[in-house]
Design a protein around this nucleic acid. Sequence first.
DNA 1: TGAGATCAGTCAACAAGGCTGACATAAATT
DNA 2: AATTTATGTCAGCCTTGTTGACTGATCTCA
Lengths: 183, 183
Amino acid sequence: MLAVLIEAERMNAPKLQTPAQATGSDEGSPGEAELRQAIELLFFAYRDFTGDPDAVLAGRGLGRAHHRAVHFINRSPGITVAGLLDILRVTKQSLNRVLRQLIAEGLVESREGKIDRRQRNLFLTEAGRELERELSALQRDRVGRALRDAGPEATSGFRDVLSQMIDSESRATVLDLIKRGAA
Amino acid sequence: MLAVLIEAERMNAPKLQTPAQATGSDEGSPGEAELRQAIELLFFAYRDFTGDPDAVLAGRGLGRAHHRAVHFINRSPGITVAGLLDILRVTKQSLNRVLRQLIAEGLVESREGKIDRRQRNLFLTEAGRELERELSALQRDRVGRALRDAGPEATSGFRDVLSQMIDSESRATVLDLIKRGAA
DNA sequence: TGAGATCAGTCAACAAGGCTGACATAAATT
DNA sequence: AATTTATGTCAGCCTTGTTGACTGATCTCA
């Protein structure tokens, strides 16, 4: 194994090519090779980013879908099912399966809406908050370390690029959602 | 629907909070709210990033797993099954199912290794290359536009942060893999 | 040369988490 | 009173991951 990959030096991580010269594109616009690198970087980074929580969740018989629900319920306690559907963009059947499990395991509580009694307001129980803290601690460690090591300039570049990657029609809405805290 | 999200102004995307003051962390290290924002940004951006190709693939009866295989075969023509397993980190049964379909559809060709006849060297057929071009064009458009709009400074910050997010044990190896082109 | 390791492929069974379609109920709205 | 909305649920399907067991061909090494 590792056939292709063995001989890489483990220390001093090789810097990726810098924008300018590297891939020939005359101006500031990224060349083909640069784009491929960015795309692959996204793939590998995202894989490791989701890897830590996945491992914890697997031990509990839960999956990434549960993590997403727990994250957004923690973030906006009392969020309705429809609100969560909007954010996650899955079908209600899909979400419902996840919520049912979370409620059965005592991680999430569903209360009848006070203004509109058809709605259900979702909350984490203490056990749910504990799980959330465990999962987010892992991701905050990883992301926090990356941002710190890369520095504040890089951090703002990272944010700018990711923001621009969001569908332009929903960008403002999504960024606004992200910007507001728990609310 | 969109209950929570409606009233966001669509124009002039709201800037996320800036590192310094915003979340109280005394020094340059990111605060809790900043980290949550970065994590959510990653989630939303990655979702849209994978959305374009997913839509095309769905029309062909293929999925994201096929995309990954096609991408890395295109990138390293002649790669062996073991090499691909190493990169994708899935089981050979899982990969084999995907490869079998790709070969059956005439998108991938598997040739007996010349040096080691146990190995199989994988190549895209012309149809495979065409699909690859279609898929990567979508992603290159999105990522290219994002990098261009965010500028070269942001681009390098984006790369730095993502690089730091990769597991430190495999970072050098992975970055080296990314850095080399098709080779 | 012969034993054992390695590369690839396969079968079977299972689980997570997407999806569609059809329906039911309670509550709100018109 | 009729209709719409919010939620929940049943049933069935698909993709893509998993484990475990086993085969055949080929390479390597003692």
